[in-house]
Nucleic acid binder design. Structure first.
Lengths: 165, 165
DNA sequence: GGTTGCAAGTTGCAACTAGAAACTTATAAT
DNA sequence: ATTATAAGTTTCTAGTTGCAACTTGCAACC
């Protein structure tokens, strides 16, 4: 019931690990539906139009991986509630980044619903890459480095290296 | 050669549109390899361990969708170079967000190589959600709203609504 | 307390997709 | 010409998805 070997093998990169969980067809759309307040099997089934067996399978996997929590409702125990865990809700930036990219390059129009700051109801800023001191970094001001060559800057220590030192 | 119907059907959300392109097995890993400087078929094949037919298929799709550009090298025309387009490089935030999530919740260790600010070689900040005025917003300070209910704030107009007004 | 109803799954089967390994094609090196 | 190499194709097997019909566990109703 898990992805075939190679993705795991290369798990030198945690991207593979993330894809192991979220990289299957429908997983992200189920997640999106969860963010939008759907909680039950039949709701997912009806709004996504996904086959029931696949939905059952994906919900099961998402629960196994701790992204959704499965609870039978106390008042009607036929109904099962699927709710995002902390781990699950932390996929929101990934989901948004993907969605924003889709808006810009594929669909061309803004998606609904839109995520806003609860304080002033203003839409959030576009997801972007920021330097440690908060500047927004365009692609051409970025560099890939090996972890061990990164020297921390006194104040804002990158605790990755501190163990090796 | 495209995903079966349902994903497209629901393209009310541009997430589906993004997944249509990037949601297949291997697509994101090929993208990651591109970001890390791989450009040729045999390089991808060797480092990812992907089957050749699938690799050919995925590269083809990524090229079709304008994420990679395919150019035979002028000095040795057997060699084909696959290079990220603008559209492709703008998937970096999505890729990083996913990778960071994987680091935190799945693999547990930081991935190599690490992305740094070219000016000071310091690692970038974690991808997060920001308000229009730049505050970092935790999950519980966010709200979903219908696009048409969002009222722009004079100065920072959200041009989505301007057409309807 | 037996029948009907409904939510959440399972099962069975057809169609499609991925993987491994051998084969082809175009170009280049000797 | 002959051999080598990059980038694919082909073939064949195994695994996955999708649909539709079926089961199961609880709830409601009479």
């Amino acid at each position: 019931m898990k992805l075939r070997e190679p993705l795991e093998e290369l798990a030198e990169c945690s991207l593979s690990a993330a894809l192991e969980v979220m990289g299957e067809r429908w997983s992200f759309l189920i997640l999106r539906a969860s963010f939008n307040g759907l909680h039950h099997f039949e709701e997912f089934q009806a709004t996504l139009g996904i086959a029931r067996n696949i939905l059952a399978n994906r919900l099961g996997r998402l629960v196994q991986h701790g992204i959704l929590a499965r609870t039978p409702m106390p008042d009607d125990r036929r109904k099962i509630e699927y709710r995002l865990t902390q781990k699950g809700s932390e996929l929101l930036p990934s989901m948004l980044a993907l969605r924003q990219w889709g808006e810009k390059w594929e669909s061309g129009f803004p998606s609904t619903p839109v995520l806003v700051d609860a304080r002033d109801n203003q839409p959030i800023r576009r997801i972007a890459i920021h330097s440690h001191d908060g500047r927004e970094l365009p692609y051409n001001e970025l560099l890939w480095m090996h972890t061990e060559d990164v020297k921390p800057l006194g104040q804002t220590t990158v605790q990755l290296v501190s163990k090796a030192a």
